[in-house]
Nucleic acid binder design. Structure first.
Length: 583
RNA sequence: GGGCUGGUAGCUCAGUUAGGGAGAGCGUCCGGCUUUUAACCGGACGGUCGGGGGUUCGAAUCCCUCCCAGCCCGCCA
C-alpha cells in the first residue's frame, strides 16, 4: 500500500492534493492564486485567515472551504497494494478522516475515498506478506517463483498468493487495508485504479494527455530529466504477457489506441525483461505514468483535499500541481504534508521488519487511543513505541479528562476540548478508564470477579457504575495483559494455580503459617499487607524475605504487585492453603 | 552538492500562528499511605530551547550561518 515500492516508506501515501490559494499568511486569497505550499497547510494556528484554531484539521477545513467546493467534498488518499498494510498507512487514513469529520460537522457532505493504485506494476517481491487472517508469512513459505514470474505486471493481474478468494494480489492487500480501517472505525470508500481504467473513468484524461502530448512533455520535463521528444505519457500493457511497458511506437488518439513493443520495465536498478511482443493497446489497456495519473485522479474524482507523506512533498506534488493546472486545466486539491512517525524509535521498514499492523496494535490499545495518536500535530515526527503503549494510553486518558474538565492544561486543553469528540465514537462522562498498568496488574489473575472487586476497592467502580462501563473498562485488562505477555515486562506475572516447588527455612515457614492464620480470620487486603510486616518482625524474618516468599508462592517470582491488597481479593481458602504450602 | 522538513528535561511531547513567566506527562529521587515491594497521593531534582552570530528594551519564537536526522532532487510510485 505504500506509494512507493521501496517498502520503506513509512507513511507512504500516494496522494496529495493541491489547493489554490495560499496558506501563506501573506498570500492573496483568490481561489485561483498560486500553488499552495503543502507544508503550510495543517500547521494549526489561523492558516492566514485570522481565525485561530487549536485543532489543525479546522485550519485545513478553512482552507478547503475558502475554495467554495461543491458538496460532496471529496477527500482522497491512496495506497499501492504492494504488501502488508501497516500502521504507517494510517497517517494517510486518519489525517483525512479528521478533516472529513470537521467538514461534516460544518454541514458538508463528505466522501473519503482511497484509491488502491492497483494498476501499478509489482517491481520487487516483498519479503513478508500477510494472509487473510493477518498471519505474517515469509516469502519462503509461499510459491515465490510463481510470484516472481509476475514482476512488471499490475497488481490486479497477479494471482492472490494465498488463493483465499480474492481475485488478485492487489485485491488481497486492498481488502486487508479496508479491514484495518474499519477496525479503527474509519469507513473508507476504496476505489480500484484498475476499475477506473476499465470502466472508462480515465478515458478523457488519457485522451487529453495524449492529444496534448507536447504540452505534457514540456511541463513534465521541468521536473524529470529523462523526458524528451520521444517520451509518451502512457504505459500500455502487453496483450501477450501482461507486463506494462514504456516502449510506445505509435499513437492514434482518434482510435484510442497506442502501438507498443513489450520491452519490459526498469525497476529498482534492474531491468525486468519483456516478451518482445509488438501489438496495439486501447486506452483502457494500460495506465498513465504516476506524474499524470495522480492529477488525472484529482480531475476525474473531483478531489478537494489530499494529505500525503513528505516523500511526495518535493517531487510529486509540485509536478502534479503544474500538470493539473497546465495540462488538465484544473485546480489541484488542497494539499497537506504530514511527517512520518517512527516505530520504536526507528523508521518504519517492511524490509527491515520494523512494521506493526493495526491488528497487532489493537490487541494492545483501544481504537480511540490509536486515533488520538493521529490527532496530534501532523508536522511532528512522533514516535510510536509499542513497548511503552502504556504511556500513550496514559496520555489519552489525560486528554479525555481534559475534555470532561477533570484536569486542566493550558496548552493541551483547547485541543482536547475541540478534538476529543472526533476521537471517540461518543463522549460519555460516565465511562471508566482503568489506568493501563493497573489493568495489567488485574490481568495477572484470570477471574472476572477478582478484577471487578479489586477495581472497586481501588475506587474505579462504585454502585453507580453502569454495566457497560465495567465491561468496557475490563476490555482494557485483556489488552494490558497481552502487552505484559508480549514484552514479558514487569507486569507479566501469573497467579500460579499449582503450588510452586520451593524450599523455605524454618523461620519463614513459621511466618507463612502465621500469615495463613491471620488470613483465615478474615481480614481485608490492607490489613493483610500490614500483617506481613508485623509477622516478619515477630518471627525475626527480613521483611523483604517474607515478601519474596509470598511472591514465590503465588507467582513463582521474587517480586510482584502489592501483595496484601492482591491476596485480599483472592479466594480466602485458596490463600490460606497456599500460604501453608498445601496446594 | 541543492531544496524541503524536523532538532525544547533521561523518555514522549506542548509552546513558534501574534517576540515578554521555559512547561506537561512519564521516569528518577525523596516523602506519605499504622507498612522498603512496582497500582494511589505529595514534593523535589532535572533544560546552553541543536551550536554560533544578528535584530530588539526583551528571542524557543524573527534574520543569517553552521551541525545532526529524515525526505526529495534518476526511474517508478
Amino acid at each position: 500500500m505504500s506509494a512507493d515500492d521501496s517498502d520503506d516508506a513509512p507513511g507512504d501515501a500516494d496522494d496529495a492534493s493541491g489547493g489554490a490559494d495560499g496558506a501563506d499568511a501573506d498570500a492573496e486569497t483568490d481561489a485561483d492564486a498560486g500553488t499552495i505550499d503543502p507544508h503550510a497547510v495543517g500547521r494549526g494556528g489561523d492558516g492566514g485567515d485570522g481565525e485561530y484554531h487549536a485543532f489543525w484539521a479546522d485550519e485545513v477545513a478553512d482552507e478547503i472551504e475558502a475554495r467554495d467546493p461543491d458538496d460532496p467534498v471529496v477527500i482522497k488518499g491512496g495506497v499501492s497494494p504492494s504488501g502488508i498494510p501497516h500502521l504507517g498507512h494510517f497517517n494517510e487514513i486518519l489525517r483525512g478522516y479528521f478533516v472529513a469529520e470537521v467538514l461534516r460537522e460544518r454541514g458538508h457532505a463528505v466522501r473519503q475515498v482511497f484509491t488502491s493504485d492497483d494498476r501499478d506494476a509489482l517491481r520487487k517481491l516483498p519479503r513478508t506478506l500477510a494472509d487473510a487472517d493477518w498471519n505474517l508469512v515469509g516469502l519462503g513459505d509461499i510459491d515465490a517463483s510463481a510470484l516472481g514470474e509476475n514482476l512488471g505486471k499490475p497488481y490486479t493481474d497477479i494471482p492472490d498468493p494465498f488463493g483465499d478468494g480474492h481475485p488478485s494480489y492487489g485485491h488481497h492487500f486492498a481488502a486487508l487495508l479496508r479491514e484495518s480501517a474499519e477496525l479503527v472505525g474509519v469507513p473508507i470508500e476504496m476505489l480500484s485504479n484498475t476499475d477506473l481504467y476499465a470502466d472508462g473513468t480515465f478515458d478523457d484524461a488519457v485522451e487529453h494527455v495524449l492529444r496534448n502530448a507536447d504540452t505534457a512533455r514540456e511541463v513534465l520535463s521541468g521536473y524529470q530529466a529523462g523526458v524528451d521528444e520521444s517520451y509518451v505519457p502512457f504505459m500500455p500493457q502487453c496483450s501477450e504477457c501482461g507486463m506494462l511497458t514504456q516502449d510506445v511506437t505509435g499513437v492514434n488518439v482518434d482510435a484510442h489506441t497506442v502501438d507498443y513493443r513489450c520491452s519490459g520495465l526498469d525497476a529498482g536498478g534492474r531491468h525486468i525483461e519483456g516478451c518482445g511482443h509488438e501489438g496495439t493497446a486501447t486506452f483502457r489497456e494500460g495506465k498513465l505514468p504516476w506524474r499524470f495519473e495522480w492529477p488525472a485522479q484529482w480531475d476525474a474524482l473531483g478531489v478537494d483535499f489530499e494529505p500525503f507523506g513528505k516523500d511526495h512533498a518535493e517531487g510529486s506534488w509540485p509536478s502534479g500541481d503544474d500538470v493539473a493546472r497546465n495540462v488538465f486545466g484544473v485546480d489541484p486539491p488542497v494539499p497537506m504534508v504530514y511527517e512520518w512517525f517512527t516505530l520504536n524509535g526507528e523508521a518504519l521498514s517492511s524490509s527491515e521488519g520494523n512494521v506493526v499492523t493495526v491488528r497487532e496494535v489493537l490487541d494492545l490499545i483501544e481504537p480511540e487511543v490509536l486515533r488520538y495518536f493521529f490527532v496530534r500535530n501532523p508536522k511532528k515526527a512522533k514516535d510510536f513505541d509499542v513497548e511503552r503503549v502504556d504511556q500513550l494510553v496514559d496520555e489519552f486518558d489525560r486528554f479525555e479528562r481534559l475534555y470532561f474538565g477533570e484536569d486542566t492544561d493550558e496548552t493541551l486543553g483547547p485541543l482536547a476540548e475541540r478534538a476529543y469528540p472526533f476521537v471517540v465514537d461518543e463522549p460519555r462522562a460516565d465511562r471508566v478508564r482503568l489506568p493501563y498498568t493497573f489493568a495489567a496488574v488485574l490481568g495477572m489473575v484470570d477471574d472476572r470477579e477478582f478484577r471487578v472487586k479489586m477495581a472497586r476497592d481501588e475506587g474505579h467502580f462504585d454502585e453507580t457504575t453502569p454495566e457497560w462501563a465495567i465491561e468496557d473498562a475490563l476490555g482494557r485488562v485483556e489488552r494490558a495483559r497481552r502487552w505484559a505477555e508480549r514484552f514479558d515486562n514487569e507486569y507479566n506475572y501469573r497467579l500460579q494455580t499449582d503450588l510452586p516447588a520451593h524450599e523455605f527455612d524454618d523461620a519463614t515457614r513459621t511466618a507463612l503459617d502465621d500469615l495463613a492464620g491471620f488470613v483465615a480470620e478474615g481480614h481485608d487486603g490492607e490489613a493483610i499487607q500490614g500483617e506481613v510486616y508485623e509477622t516478619a518482625r515477630r518471627r525475626d524474618v527480613e521483611v523483604s524475605a517474607l515478601f519474596e516468599a509470598g511472591y514465590r508462592l503465588f507467582f513463582d517470582e521474587t517480586q510482584g504487585p502489592r501483595l496484601g491488597e492482591f491476596l485480599g481479593e483472592l479466594e480466602r481458602d485458596f490463600v490460606v492453603r497456599r500460604l501453608r504450602r498445601e496446594g
